[in-house]
Design a protein around this nucleic acid. Sequence first.
DNA 1: TCTTATAGTTCTAAAAGAGAACTGTCAATT
DNA 2: AATTGACAGTTCTCTTTTAGAACTATAAGA
Lengths: 170, 170
Amino acid sequence: MKWKELEEEPCSMARTIGVIGDRWTLLILRECFLRTRRFEGFQSALGITRHLLAERLKKLVRQGILRRIPYQESPKRHEYILTQKGLDLYPIMMAIVHWGDTHMVDERGRPLLHQHRKCGKDFDPVMVCSECGEPLSAKEVHTHPGPGARSTPASPPPATSKTKARSRAA
Amino acid sequence: MKWKELEEEPCSMARTIGVIGDRWTLLILRECFLRTRRFEGFQSALGITRHLLAERLKKLVRQGILRRIPYQESPKRHEYILTQKGLDLYPIMMAIVHWGDTHMVDERGRPLLHQHRKCGKDFDPVMVCSECGEPLSAKEVHTHPGPGARSTPASPPPATSKTKARSRAA
DNA sequence: TCTTATAGTTCTAAAAGAGAACTGTCAATT
DNA sequence: AATTGACAGTTCTCTTTTAGAACTATAAGA
């Protein structure tokens, strides 16, 4: 499967995975949220090969998640900073960190704590329903097709060429 | 970088990425949350090669995210179902879907809607602070080292062998 | 002039993934 | 009794990605 195909599936998860669903991209984004902005910064923090780093940064810029901004002329140098679209990835990052904090810590405890400036306390991220404010769990949620679902009852899908996957929306 | 190394970093994000940070694993998990349980089900829904599917399922079982449970004898057949640890991935999945719903939909709109059984409404997932209940954004959060951080001021890190990454906790 | 900092690009070898075919067990059909 | 089909994998070859290291380019500073 190619990345491009993923981005075209009628599934918000598949599309998102097509953009950020590989380890290096996720780690680069972690660095972005930790305020890393420059090529060398990413490279030395992550130990990623320079080749891949250059490629991933380009992709993130293409996707509008990072913006490449000059911070000096001669020699030209740029910084990579998160756009709003990139900042919106924060809940994904926090959800990942929180799962790790819950299920992957060793005896020593959490590597990093998060303090909420507004209330001043160390916190955990909690996912709640936008309508009633209650915490969410998988079993309390029912999924149903939305307007962008692939097969409307009226018109069956036009035999999607070579892709063997029976497409499944999410 | 090998997956194993990731799982040993003092960073909850890196560790989590080591477990679920690749596209197929994420897509398999999507299917799990959509109630797919069997090998053929995953294979035909995703179009993943059988080889990779077998490997990924094994890994998820090893990690305690899925449990392999017999549903018939002769011939022996098993289903893969989410453990509690697996169910706890739900906020990650929802955060990913929601970002896609926000930034990756086409004119047609969302492929899938989510209804909260408790309140009966279609909702968006919102990430809030466990302490004060306010929605979170990256800029309102300050990160600081926790007990499991790698370099305690007292004892500097023991020159971490070959890994070139200057480790960075999260 | 020589070294360092920065941001890449280019090369080769190793690892991972794609694609297709094959195995083995049993139930149902011909 | 032999054949087909469902299911859950395994094995094979070929292609694409990654890893790892070296190289390029520009300018500032010792």
